[in-house]
Computed example of a mutant assay.
Amino acid sequence: MKAKSSFSLKDQLFNSDKVSYLTTLIVAVYPHFAQQTFHQDVVSAFSKLELKERIAHIAVCLHKHLPDDYQDALVILLQSLPPELDSNKTDDDFGDFIFAPYSLYVALYGCRADYVDLSLKALKEITKRFSAEDAVRYFINTFSDETLGFLSDCAVDDNYHVRRWACEGTRPKLPWAQKLTIDYKRSLPILDILYRDKTRYVTRSVANHLNDISKVDPSLVIATLKKWINDQNQTEQEMAFITQHALRTLTKQGHQEALTLIGFGTKPDITITNFSTSTPQVKVGDAFEFSFDMCSNRSQKLLVDYLMYFASDGKKQSQKVFKLKQLELKKGEAITLFKKHPMRLMTTRRLILGEHKIVLQVNGQAFGALTFNLVEA
């Protein structure tokens, strides 16, 4: 049984007020724009559409209400853009989702041989307000050489949103985006530039990109990270962040080379006792709680995670590894660890009522399991 959620991300990001804001920007540079008709066309369909469908719907409505000539329409859209995102920030500045239809408009109506250069330059401007990472994939798949060359130049752009876009747009497994048809290795020259970046927003994207590749080619990722570490073109602290974040999937899987590269490659020599839960039954919205005692039988570094198997609705069982703690213990040293795991409704993961299980993992090795039952609030 699926737990019900009252929060709607699609309604928060795409609603009547957001569409009004968009129309106000367009009318300011194109007075002939049918503001009320466009607003009605867009909003009247929202109740039937999911988030990505709303983006596509707005893009189609823009095409309907803007001049038929693509180049004329594009000039209007670019002139209507608000100021660029604050270039003084260094992280988590995603911009406003309401401009996602702009980039999709470019992808739907400007992904043609005679418009490639014009369209890519337009996406570069749009991505300074909201990332055009999905839209550029239309061009990567259709005009790979031209687009990868353009994105390579973007990797050294002064604007960190543009640099990040070069990385996100070429990610092999970018969430909510169409699949790329090019070989994932073709994006490595872009990563070789961007891993040196001084902005965490960019280096996190590089790490996410490598994490995508690690799911199909672990050896390539480990070799790439080793090369970057040896080249010393990034600070030790930031390189450590990139390495650990890029290898998170492999370390959760207990991949020996990955664990070794982040300093947790040795098999743990520990004793686990009192692994138990005080919440064998959890209501939706509450937290599952567990604790255990751990004694180190020698001096060692330990990476403690737990793997959660979510209740199944008859399909493939969902599972996810969660970080708990990194620590270094001396021989004979003991520690008690306690964790509260919220079982909240989220837009990114649905909850199924029923039995859940966690498996404790230390340096990728399993050390016991617990179950709990998720019930309605």
Rank of each mutant, 00 (worst) to 15 (best):
T170A: 11
Q40V: 02
K121V: 14
G263N: 06
W176E: 02
L13S: 08
L302Y: 15
L327T: 12
D192M: 00
G95W: 12
T24Y: 10
V27A: 15
D17A: 15
D91H: 10
V75P: 01
W176D: 01
R171D: 01
D72W: 08
Q244T: 12
G314L: 04
L25T: 01
D231V: 01
S278Q: 10
T142H: 09
A166I: 03
T371L: 06
L188P: 00
A207N: 02
S291G: 08
A369H: 07
L327E: 04
S47D: 08
H245G: 03
V29N: 05
T279D: 06
S119K: 03
M343G: 02
D68E: 11
K64F: 06
K283V: 05
K227E: 15
T90C: 12
E333R: 11
P342Y: 15
S296H: 10
A73W: 03
N373A: 14
P67S: 05
I193P: 00
Q300E: 02
R298C: 06
L250N: 02
K357R: 15
C295A: 12
I126E: 03
V321D: 03
G149L: 11
L51C: 14
V42H: 00
Q319Y: 07
I182G: 02
I140E: 00
K323R: 09
A287F: 11
N141L: 12
Q232K: 10
D92G: 14
N297I: 03
L81N: 05
L49S: 06
S205K: 03
Q237N: 12
D197A: 05
I126F: 13
Y138M: 01
S291R: 10
I193E: 03
L345Q: 07
F310N: 00
N88K: 15
G265V: 02
D93F: 12
L78N: 09
H32R: 10
D192L: 00
T371S: 12
D286M: 02
G332T: 08
Q326A: 14
I55R: 01
D69E: 15
F367D: 00
K179A: 15
D69T: 10
Y109D: 00
Q178L: 07
H39F: 13
N233Y: 14
V106D: 05
R129F: 13
Q326K: 13
V282K: 11
D286N: 11
D41L: 09
T273H: 13
A166Y: 08
F372E: 00
A166N: 03
T224M: 06
S318C: 05
Q237D: 10
Y184E: 01
T277Y: 12
A45S: 08
V206K: 04
L13W: 11
K340R: 14
L22G: 14
N211T: 07
R200G: 06
Q79N: 12
E84P: 06
Q234D: 07
L74E: 01
D86E: 12
